[in-house]
Write a protein that binds this DNA or RNA. Structure first.
Lengths: 340, 340
DNA sequence: CCGGTTACTGTAACCGGTTACAGTATAGCA
DNA sequence: TGCTATACTGTAACCGGTTACAGTAACCGG
């Protein structure tokens, strides 16, 4: 311990202490050139003694790589993100990268560049849903900055790798379940936010199921759910007040299902006897609702893992799959009328 | 657009294009020295034209500040983290900092330094619960690296600012509620992980409530819950199989409450008629359990906000409150016997 | 009119790593 | 023996910012 300065040891301190040049130290650290066994041993000792850790900034500056992935999201809270984040984080660290997260929460989504996360501090970006507009993507794409989109597709004219889940087929299947198994014909749809792609695909699945069974699409049976508990609740109340007749509800997501169940319950309408209910996402609360919710399970953690892997591949090789569509499965509980 | 090189513009490009020196550009960017109005205008134009963004690494290297906060956690998944993370992230960005997150998930918690996050890439660290052992903290503290602990207290001999919630008083209050309002006397306690401080405080609160009402503490009424659904479920099954008599259950957290409710339900024991149940945390699913769970609400997002604020204060001024204890409140639903 | 302050600007060193290039020593081979 | 390939090491330039220091011009008070 010859060092008493309060600041941390640098590579030059290590070099001096071990009696070698900084180049040798660097080579030993990065294992990119042979270093004699005795020098290696000496360096190892000195490094632990000095608690030496290479400074990330200096390294990035020299190599032009930050070894950091960025994640751009809309809102961290909510049931949806933990598994997504967990998957992303896992892959990120398995590959020795850091993860910088940033959420866009301003009311009017600011696109004021520079974003908190970008080429200036990361090697690539994971972009969730509509946390970045087409112009922003265009801008990144123009400078060939690696981008992978999660739960959305490339904007017009750009080819950016996307990772998402199969929304339409699963929606169709679950609605068909309501029709075929439970004989429902007037099925409400509480749609998600209009700009959300998941939402759009789920509506298409809903329509396809109706079509397959020759049930005419009735606009009166569609109302806003917005992936939001209270909005769905109010939509439901209004529909009931207007006396709209229906025998089932398919909600854009589980949050909306919660709101729908509350409204139905308050109105004294029994689920699933009078009305079947089905959601989408299989959030953690789904099995605990009354009745337990029939819904669609999406492999969200896997989406995170795959997205991070694709981004790393894009960074390292310049190659990534244009589209990864992960399978979903419907989980039948009681709210549709089964198991009761 | 004179620039055609694919790499991003540097400060020298901006300087050349605007006909000034790099020092002037830097000063304009950082507003730390006067720059003439006309030069300022010219720089503004050039900067947007070149899409110039100062590179974070180079800046950090020169200033010795990363403008990045690190977060060390145990496990990202679970209901608990989203609000915590949300609070941390909000404050971090309000202050122009970046957030680097890292979770320690290895079976045997590796303490192999360097951690993925530390002085080499951040200005300070938020440490959640036991994601870092005493030795690790000692090490950071020795080099005066800013640290703020979340949901745990300083290890012996160190003074590190802590932010957590009032566990004991709330536990005592909710157990007293079971005793006073619902006349319960044989109250099970499903304890959390032994090393978790929250868990320990909650047990102390439980014991204090018993003591206040002259109910002797009975070790037979304590079983492992581990903040885990299935462990609590099995503990409960065993207690029932052994024929232990009880009229209420206080679980270390809501996860354990879910397991307890499942076991009770399967055994045909009605809640809250035969047995009252109370949890802790007020997780998102709590109101949807059957019956809706009486529990304690902790201001988790606020914990995140305050912790980040304290860390920033520590970084900027060297000062922070040794201990911030945020208030909790009990939320009475039905599982205790109220509102039914 | 002069000395001193203020407003603004430029030059160049520096932060802590990486790496191109140059060099030495030894081994292998004819 | 000489010649080349290989193993290992060092010097110094470079990455893209910041900032100490120096310098010029305008302004201000007496």
């Amino acid at each position: 311990m010859t060092k008493t300065k309060s600041s941390a040891a640098t590579i030059r301190d290590v070099a001096r202490q071990a009696g070698v040049s900084v180049a040798t130290v660097s080579r030993y650290i990065n294992h990119n050139a042979p270093v004699s066994a005795e020098v290696a041993a000496r360096l190892e000792t000195v490094m632990v003694e000095l608690h030496y850790t290479p400074q990330a900034n200096a390294r990035s500056l020299a190599t032009h790589r930050t070894h950091t992935l960025g994640l751009l999201m809309v809102d961290i809270a909510g049931d949806f993100f933990p598994p997504l984040l967990s998957g992303i984080e896992a892959v990120t660290y398995e590959n020795g990268y850091d993860l910088l997260i940033s959420s866009i929460r301003e009311p009017e989504r600011r696109r004021t560049f520079p974003l908190p996360v970008g080429p200036h501090n990361t090697d690539g970006l994971l972009v969730f849903a509509d946390s970045l507009d087409a112009e922003g993507m265009q801008r990144f794409a123009a400078s060939h900055f690696p981008l992978v989109l999660i739960h959305r597709s490339s904007p017009e004219g750009l080819i950016i790798p996307c990772v998402t889940v199969e929304n339409k087929a699963a929606s169709c299947t679950i609605v068909e379940h309501l029709i075929e198994t439970h004989n429902r014909r007037r099925i409400l749809f509480l749609q998600g936010p209009g700009e959300q792609e998941d939402s759009q695909w789920r509506e298409l699945g809903y329509r396809e199921a109706l079509e397959k069974h020759n049930i005419p699409f009735d606009p009166a049976l569609v109302a806003p759910g917005n992936f939001d508990r209270v909005i769905a609740y109010h939509s439901m109340q209004q529909l009931l007040a207007r006396g709209v007749i229906f025998d089932a509800v398919f909600t854009g997501d589980d949050e909306a299902a919660v709101g729908a169940l509350m409204a139905l319950n308050e109105a004294g309408i029994t689920v699933p006897d009078a009305v079947s209910v089905a959601g989408f996402d299989d959030q953690r609360m789904a099995p605990f609702l009354t009745p337990p919710l029939t819904t669609v399970r999406a492999p969200t953690e896997e989406v995170g893992r795959v997205a991070a892997q694709q981004l790393l591949s894009l960074i390292r090789t310049g190659q990534a799959n244009p589209l990864t569509l992960l399978p979903t499965e419907i989980v039948i509980r009681c709210s549709c009328g089964c198991n009761s």
